[in-house]
Design a protein around this nucleic acid. Structure first.
Lengths: 212, 212
DNA sequence: TTTCGTCAGATAACGCCGTTATCTATGATG
DNA sequence: CATCATAGATAACGGCGTTATCTGACGAAA
């Protein structure tokens, strides 16, 4: 009978393709990524890629999945760090922003406007859900610990959307030269939202305590 | 001597090309827009387009400019409407969101991540500046009228980024099925930011007055 | 009125893209 | 050792953005 690719070989092939794709996305930009180019870098023919991925979109979906997971890793690491919930939440925010600007191609890949919907229960959908859970988790904990008082899911999405808004305006170069710097906008936004949700008990200790 | 295109003919040619480009962007999506396709719709050869625009990117830049101007028109109309500054500011926000979801391709065109920088003093740069001014203007007026108290530019950018964040998450389909609806997130975000900036005098009249 | 120069626009072509059809060589199984 | 399904190469398709080249039409000059 034939010589079948083992599961391990398939996995390795996919991993090699993804590695090249991610490197090229960084080097030449997401939109210049091409099947021919990836194959060239591997010393393969372009058609060989189709033994490992159904088409280009499948490669992008896998790269998106990996990007989601890397983002989640960083958010979870920040959340698992030292300090009280205030400090850790701040670190989660920093991790998000750092990820975005250290990996703009990954951030773009994840949040690009035109995206084919992910198949339900696909790896991509799961990675997306994990990232969303991480974007919610720290807010839920703040509410659970009584630091702030709000509908956790709603407030989490407000935080997330706000952060994503500044990040993506900055990335798209839509903050003109007359605009305040990115970090100023971000800090002011977060400060306003936080204060709007401070629990009565936290209001005394945090609000005054945080500003010496 | 030769038969030169008059300024008017050039302007008309550019207008026809743009009209087709914008229609096709709506019909088939921004990324399927092509020089060949635009020319086909015009009954021209693809190369004829190069008599009117330097290249495809120039067409996109012109379309971006037009999109910016349409957005500005709507923002200005909302700002010029009836009612006090609270009502008009609310309408500016509605105009922004309505524009985004009624013209997703235009919104995408404007706020897409990867954008070649606009040439300084180009029509595009001017249209961009006009739109940014409109995103600032209503906040400046609120501050001027004493309704709220903040650095106008900073607060305007916080509002804008927040709104853009919810809009673009929604457009990219990144708000999962477990997320609160778009309008809920938007309203909550705007409410929180507004309250954080209410001037002491407005706090009494607005905060209580606005909730019956 | 004929010639001529110049430019608008068409045709052809280039190299790239994503993808499919077809071929070839391989190596485990009978 | 012969067979045969398959991995991967080669070739090809239609489409892309863009450039080179050709063609034809018109205003100025003769």
């Amino acid at each position: 009978m034939p010589v079948l690719l083992t599961q391990a070989q398939i996995a390795e092939g996919r991993a090699r393709i993804l590695a090249v794709a991610e490197r090229q996305a960084v080097e030449i930009g997401l939109d210049r990524l091409s099947m021919h180019g990836i194959a060239r870098a591997l010393g393969w023919s372009a058609t060989a890629l189709y033994r490992y991925f159904e088409n280009k979109e499948a490669i992008l979906a896998a790269a998106r999945t990996a990007a989601f997971d890397r983002l989640s890793d960083r958010l979870e690491a920040a959340m698992a760090g030292p300090g009280d919930i205030w400090a850790r939440s701040r670190e989660v925010g920093n991790a998000y922003v750092d990820f975005a600007f250290e990996n703009p191609q990954s951030y773009r890949l994840i949040f690009e406007f035109a995206q084919p919907p992910a198949a339900p229960d696909s790896d991509l959908a799961l990675a997306n859900a994990r990232a969303r859970a991480n974007m919610r988790g720290y807010v839920e904990q703040m509410v659970a610990e009584g630091a702030i008082d709000a509908d956790p899911s709603l407030l989490a999405h407000v935080f997330w959307a706000g952060l994503h808004g500044v990040v993506s305006l900055q990335m798209a170069g839509r903050l003109g030269p007359d605009a305040p710097p990115f970090e100023t906008i971000r800090r002011d936004m977060v400060r306003r939202i936080i204060r709007s949700a401070l629990s009565p008990s936290a209001r005394a200790s945090h609000q005054t305590g945080a500003r010496r």
